[in-house]
Design a protein around this nucleic acid. Structure first.
Lengths: 351, 351
DNA sequence: GCGTTCGACTTGAACGATCCAACAACCGAC
DNA sequence: GTCGGTTGTTGGATCGTTCAAGTCGAACGC
């Protein structure tokens, strides 16, 4: 501090009248150092405000304690915010575990794979977090094939492999149980007395969307209402939500809408308001969304909240066990986390 | 690749029948190497797929080429998305310039300063980007006093210092010209024939808010309409936006609302819709927001877009000149970037 | 009493790059 | 033919840490 250059192991060693290695041992395996010596070294460390140079350490140990994350392309949708909160939680959890998060960008999956190679070769990044896997993702396969530690936020929806292998199928992942989420939302509406609960979803084929659909269906089936269901599928946008809801509301018996996303729910809300204006005195149609984005909070929309903090914590845990090479049998390598419903005005009454 | 371990400078040197240093020169100062030798070395590099180990380089040169950014606390407001897009742009620009972005979190300003020290001492981070400066910020002062390269996204609104010094006042920053933004929005409305354009803003005292207010006022003054203005100030939320707009719309002569943020504009839109429903046939009140968030796009709201890509590019540029130690006189150390208006449905006609 | 084991600590080498000073080769000049 | 200067190349030292092997003295068993 005083002379401008930072103290090193040797400085501390001289100060405590021991060797470099002993200081290093105090930090890395304190149990091999006699208590009184340890005490003396720790005092010297404190006095000099010594902090180990992680760069030098990394050069020797080939471990960086850095995680890589591709900055997901700025999605136009509202739900992009989930990734945002996840990133925050991930940084937090990683830091708590002594890891850092480093960002990078890439145009497409192939460019991302090239960046993996690059980051591994040049900076020695320890592992990666993938936040937006999709069906037939080449990235998980590449990482698995090259023995690079990684975790995905999101299940591998497509488990087929060209060569019939199964490596990618069993990679570690953490995900939100969307099915449980929509199920809870639907059950909440059924409990409130709604009998005709429609679903506004995405086109079939997206793993996430189908999963959420399944939850809604399961809840209705549980109540014996699955014989004649109302479903409308559409792209994820507010405008599409308005259109979809308007069509569904034409059926006058529908009293509640479970939406696959907050975007669609936001549109549905507008349609419901319109619909209600034409039928004064009638109880307004209830609406629920998914993701509990800030927008949902803003417009008082009931929504299914994704506990991204939990996801991040488990992701870091899974990565650590891979990086440290301990094949933790006790640790589930696939983690499904239950979301919870945040009940707000729109599922009670809409103005 | 084949034998599992990556090639080093020495490997390449042997392969090209030159010394380590010559290979290093080819990479770092190619002009000192004779063309034919250079060619031979480059071929060896390509054949072996050699990539310099940045960790070893960093240990020697004490330069990490890594920028630190505190992950801003997940703001509940919609405008938090601006930071999100900025983060993406920053990562992109940094990568283009051969830099990386590393994230960290901190509870408060003091903890953040401790993290600065920590990151500098242990990982040798080259510089920092501060994305959320506020009045009387201790962080900029600390960084300036310790000679750490940094740039802020946002002007220092409070220029006073306890000891009367001026260091912090002159730190490099990049910001969006909010005044120019609201001015453009207001002018756009005036051009469309509106005469009574109200302003929905934040409470006085926030630099950003006052700046945006000033732009609106300047536009009205330019049109000779500044004598009797309509202003309502409120906290940044959708609900507050509804309330504020409702009160302002009670004055029947107001035909347009310039809002300080998309959150408030979103609320205003709801109030306008209500207002219009009670006065069928009348031309609906126009609304503009600020930030051009995804929500604005979603509900077709005219808004002032912040060119975060430009901000990021200039920020990286300013950081580089500091890190590389070149006191670029030609480079403006304070950069104000003009936003642009994105005209959408809400400033033409509201349904 | 002597060899063996053990605990506590020290020493030299390595990680992979860059910096520095020295050196070989070449050119033209006297 | 020797010399000074330029250009291109070389080997050794260095950054700060950890690994592997080694030293030293005390405790132990027979």
């Amino acid at each position: 501090m005083a002379d401008g250059s930072r103290p090193t192991l040797t400085t501390v060693a001289e100060h405590a009248r021991v060797s470099r290695q002993t200081v290093s041992n105090v930090l890395n395996s304190p149990e091999v150092v006699r208590p009184d010596t340890r005490e003396r070294v720790l005092r010297a460390i404190a006095e000099l405000d010594y902090r180990p140079n992680v760069v030098a350490r990394q050069l020797r140990t080939r471990r960086s304690s850095v995680l890589g994350l591709r900055m997901p392309p700025a999605s136009d949708g509202i739900s992009g915010q989930v990734l945002d909160r996840f990133l925050h939680a991930l940084t937090d959890e990683a830091q708590r575990a002594g890891l850092r998060v480093m960002l990078f960008t890439a145009e497409d999956d192939d460019a991302e794979i090239r960046e993996y190679q690059n980051l591994r070769a040049t900076t020695g990044i320890d592992g990666f977090v993938l936040a937006n896997t999709h069906a037939g993702d080449p990235r998980t396969r590449w990482l698995a094939d090259h023995g690079v530690p990684f975790v995905t936020f999101g299940r591998p929806w497509d488990t087929r492999r060209d060569d019939g292998g199964t490596t990618a199928d069993h990679h570690p992942w953490v995900d939100i149980d969307g099915r449980a989420g929509t199920r809870a939302a639907t059950q909440h509406l059924l409990d409130a007395g709604h009998r005709r609960v429609a679903f506004l979803g995405w086109p079939e084929g997206s793993g996430v969307g189908d999963d959420r659909f399944a939850g809604w269906h399961a809840a209705l089936a549980g109540a014996g209402l699955a014989d004649d269901v109302v479903v409308h599928r559409t792209a994820d946008s507010v405008a599409q939500g308005v259109a979809a809801a308007t069509r569904v509301l034409a059926r006058d018996d529908v009293t509640a809408l479970v939406c696959v996303s907050d975007s669609i729910a936001l549109g549905a809300l507008a349609a419901v308001r319109e619909h209600a204006a034409q039928r004064p005195g009638r109880r307004a149609v209830a609406v629920t969304g998914f993701d509990d984005t800030p927008v949902a909070r803003a417009v008082d929309l009931t929504s299914v909240a994704q506990p991204v903090g939990d996801v991040a914590a488990r992701a870091v845990e899974l990565l650590r066990s891979q990086i440290e090479g301990r094949d933790d049998v006790a640790l589930d390598r696939q983690v499904l986390i239950e979301p919870h419903l945040v009940v707000r005005a729109t599922s009670r009454a809409v103005r």
